[in-house]
Design a protein around this nucleic acid. Structure first.
Lengths: 255, 255
DNA sequence: CGGAAGGTTGAGCCCCATCAATTATTGTGG
DNA sequence: CCACAATAATTGATGGGGCTCAACCTTCCG
């Protein structure tokens, strides 16, 4: 279980702290969302396409994916969900999910009733702004993936994705210099990159030979962290890592 | 200029009307956003990547695109913006745009200051919910495009896109039975589908030969509108066309 | 009517898919 | 700790979907 009394223990606090310097009260408000935590084994479906959404969720530990499949089994991973990421934030609209979410590794996840979210937005507008900013970031990541799949080569795509994961893991303190753990099979990577597992293997070999990455045993090293551009023209703008500039607050309503 | 006094004249009203039966007062509140309208010639950049966002925008007439380019000129269109669509709704976060927006055809667009948006959310929560739902829809369209680019063949992708545009145009009353106008060159389509213009030509020929679409002179006919699945396994769930179920309202805050 | 832009068609090639076999790696029970 | 099976990763050979280059045709518009 999470320990909500240890400040900064939760990756969500790290992430939101990047967007706004949070007061103790604001941090406490966020922490109060993190009470009910549940553990899921790997390869569990957390949300199925078509299911009605009733709660938002926050990941403390483990990797999950958003994905969709076609009838013949082709699968596409839209996004990786890392510790500190939320999903189903828009459960307040009472819609059905248009995609599925699955735990790739064992996960620890807090579920938050919709009312707690809307309360948070109303009472803590600066926190709300930070949450909207992270939603904005996620949408931008979807657009970046569209650019990758449509216009980048397999090698560019792979390099770009690994670099992006390295940056995102850094935000929540889950990397070590250029190194991070990547708990994915090459089949998973293939489904994210729009490739076959065989070609992923060859592509990673190429990146290793180029001296861009080191990779073995589900452990990755970004060998030239200063040379963003070498990784498929990576540019970090789309991750929106800069602080919120202003006391303007975001939309949160209630019934 | 728009005539804000003619109810239902604006495609935004049609679109939001699908999500919630709007009262006269609510319709009036929406209409009040539509005052300041400007016209732009085709191929105008409306927003450039990196630019600070200061206003939200609503399209009444014309087609626009969200796109990004790589340094060597490769371009990817992330999304088409049709009459009734909004963009830069999250200008309230005072962020820089991570992509560009351009008018493909001559466009008529209303610009809305951030404060009007946050006011609207506070005073008209049902309208706010409808706006969030349409934002949700746009995010779902991005995910669907990721699935297309990653896992659908060129033929499936093209069929799926044309069918999607047909559905979306229907929502705002811009189609006529199975027919609609498509003011795009095949180079534009190529940049949306992640293909080359040459291959788009061949792909469309194939779809014509299969009897799925008719196409000439920038005019498209969906020949088997009842057979959604034939169009790249199109499934309309992701467009979230169902009404909002509940008086629960969405997030909108203010300073 | 002439030029420009867009669309079509053909030939050849390349990136990535497919199929298949081999080699790690991981996990499990004796 | 080893034997063994299952899963994952790698490599090779071959094929195909989509790209490239180039020519030709069609449409549009001044």
């Amino acid at each position: 279980m999470a320990d909500p009394h240890t400040p900064d223990s939760h990756p969500l606090l790290r992430k939101l702290g990047r967007y706004a310097r949070l007061s103790a009260a604001e941090r406490q408000a966020i922490t109060s969302l993190l009470r009910r935590e549940a553990a899921f084994p790997e390869h569990t479906d957390l949300v199925r396409q078509g299911q009605m959404l009733t709660k938002a969720a926050i990941i403390r530990e483990g990797w999950a994916i958003r994905y969709r499949t076609l009838r013949d089994g082709r699968r596409q991973i839209m996004n990786f969900l890392l510790p500190g990421d939320m999903f189903d934030l828009c459960a307040f609209l009472l819609t059905a999910s248009d995609h599925s979410i699955a735990a790739l590794t064992p996960c620890k996840i807090s579920f938050v009733p919709v009312s707690s979210i809307t309360d948070l937005f109303r009472r803590w507008p600066r926190v709300g702004a930070a949450l909207w900013k992270s939603a904005l970031q996620e949408e931008a990541m979807l657009r970046e993936r569209i650019l990758s799949l449509g216009r980048r080569s397999a090698r560019e795509r792979a390099a770009h994705l690994l670099y992006e994961l390295w940056v995102r893991l850094g935000i929540v303190g889950l990397r070590n210099g250029g190194d991070f753990d990547l708990p994915l099979t090459q089949a998973d990577l293939a489904d994210a990159l729009g490739l076959t597992p065989v070609h992923v293997s060859r592509t990673l070999r190429y990146l290793r030979q180029q001296g861009l990455i080191g990779m073995s045993n589900r452990h990755v090293t970004i060998l030239r962290p200063r040379e963003e551009g070498q990784y498929g023209e990576f540019g970090r703008d789309y991750l929106h890592l800069t602080p919120i500039r202003d006391p303007v607050a975001p939309p949160v309503g209630h019934a």
